[in-house]
Design a protein around this nucleic acid. Structure first.
Length: 410
RNA sequence: GUGGGUGUGGUUCAGGUGGUUAGAGCGUCAGGUUGUGGCCCUGAAGAUCGCCGGUUCGAGUCCGGUCAUCCACCCCA
């Protein structure tokens, strides 16, 4: 993706806000490589997931080692934590990152093959308070960005202990309706019945409406955890709805899963998705350690901000444009401009040899708050007219007195 | 991977049933007298009509293929 100045300020605004909110919630930035050994994603994200099976950009290096461009960030952070022994530090570990990710998918609105996400992870905190903390951070960022049509949905998908029971119940239920299900869902019946829950087909979703719900099959520990999470969210005044159809496509998720969904930005409406992944660190070769986090799609945030009409103000233009007539004045112009820059004023002068009128037009387009015009007579007298572009008023200033000029520009 | 839409100057788009110099708005650049912007006016530059092949005396316009892009499925952030 190419991003030009007319849009980049939106990205910068989101990144800046994300960093501020993350810092306030006690997260610190982590940076890690753009690609990893493919095996990391196979184990971390999951061999059976679509991401690993058909969406990774995988290639061999000169030694024949299989590498893949990161399709997400969590597996890499887990690897970094293990490889650097961070699990031995004071827990919990709280990291955030702003990265580009790569997935070979068919592009559409809100989905591209290289995409950007802001993500956070907490390692070593098993309490529901950690889940609430992460959700609250995401919620705070979304509010800070003034998004209106975004709602929080939560669910619990249980743990390796209670999930099999639920899967059995689900399979049994859908099997009774198997002749009504769509073709793909009939296949899912055996491979991954969970996925039938978020099938978009009308009949399937109707059948799914009355299907067994994950939260009814949670083991005692998972049920208590989910209960605590709700209590925490209630205490924080965060509104949410329980959506038992939220399932995750990545194998590492356990218990809490959640999404912030934005209405009206197209079919790819999940602006932020996350959950708990207590088995991840262990499955990629580390100690048993709890984890929870989320990722926000930055392009989807922008889509949503555009829709809600809450884009930030574009940056102001330059403070001063110095127009010049003739070679001597041109040299004087770059000199004054540079002296001003050194004292913190943004200033520009002609670099392409435009006529005076064209320079003025340029100054206007560059959003210059003031212009200064230099010709032979100004060089001789040392005085020039400083023009305020908003109302056209002019004042005479001493062009050799930078302090006075700076003061006049305030 | 599947389905549908679209591909014409920098950009947004026009270009009935194929016919001779492919148009417009915006943008860019230059002018509108003598050293000054935003509005307005004038002019200019800029397109092998995505690519390849075919039908035809002749194709931007028809056919086939291919690529790109968009939307949706799928999947997810």
């Amino acid at each position: 993706m190419d991003i030009f100045p007319d849009e980049i300020y939106i990205w910068q605004h989101i990144e800046k806000t994300a960093r501020e909110v993350a810092a306030r919630y006690g997260f610190e930035e982590i940076r890690f490589p753009t690609f990893e050994e493919t095996a990391l994603f196979n184990r971390g994200v999951g061999d059976t997931t679509d991401i690993v099976q058909k969406e990774m950009y995988t290639f061999s290096d000169r030694d024949g080692l299989s590498l893949s461009l990161r399709p997400e960030g969590t597996a890499s952070v887990a690897r970094a934590v293990i490889e650097n022994g961070k699990y031995a530090d004071t827990l919990p570990l709280k990291y955030y990152y702003i990265i580009n990710c790569f997935r070979y998918e068919k592009p559409q609105a809100g989905r591209s093959r290289e995409f950007y996400q802001f993500g956070v992870e907490i390692f070593g905190a098993q309490n529901a308070a950690a889940d609430a903390h992460v959700i609250a951070m995401g919620n705070a960022l979304i509010q800070e960005l003034r998004l209106k049509s975004t709602a929080l949905h939560i669910n619990s998908i249980g743990c390796p202990e209670c999930r099999p029971k639920y899967h059995d119940a689900l399979r049994e239920y859908f099997r009774a309706h198997s002749d009504e299900l769509c073709e793909t869902c009939r296949k899912r019946l055996e491979t991954n019945p969970l996925r039938i829950l978020d099938c978009k087909s009308e009949i399937c979703s109707k059948i799914a409406d009355t299907a067994p719900r994950t939260i009814e099959y949670l083991c005692d520990d998972c049920a208590a955890h989910f209960d605590n999470l709700k209590k925490c969210l209630d205490a924080l005044g965060i509104t949410y709805s329980i959506d038992t159809r939220i399932v995750r496509g990545l194998d590492y998720y356990t218990r809490t899963v959640f999404e912030f969904i934005s209405e009206g930005i197209g079919a790819q409406s999940t602006v932020c998705g996350g959950g708990r992944y207590d088995g991840l660190i262990e499955s990629v070769g580390g100690p048993r350690m709890a984890g929870i986090g989320f990722a926000m799609g930055i392009t989807r945030l922008i889509l949503s901000m555009k829709q809600d009409g809450v884009l930030p103000e574009p940056p102001a233009g330059i403070t001063l444009y110095i127009a010049s007539l003739g070679d001597a004045a041109s040299v004087k112009a770059i000199e004054i401009a540079d002296r001003l820059r050194r004292v913190g004023i943004s200033a520009e002068s002609d670099l392409v040899g435009r006529s005076l009128k064209a320079q003025m037009k340029y100054a206007n387009k560059a959003g210059a708050a003031y212009t200064l015009i230099l010709g032979d007579s100004e060089l001789e007298s040392g005085k020039a007219q400083l023009k305020k572009m908003s109302d056209g008023s002019q004042v005479e200033i001493d062009i050799n007195n930078i302090a006075e000029l700076k003061a006049a520009l305030q």
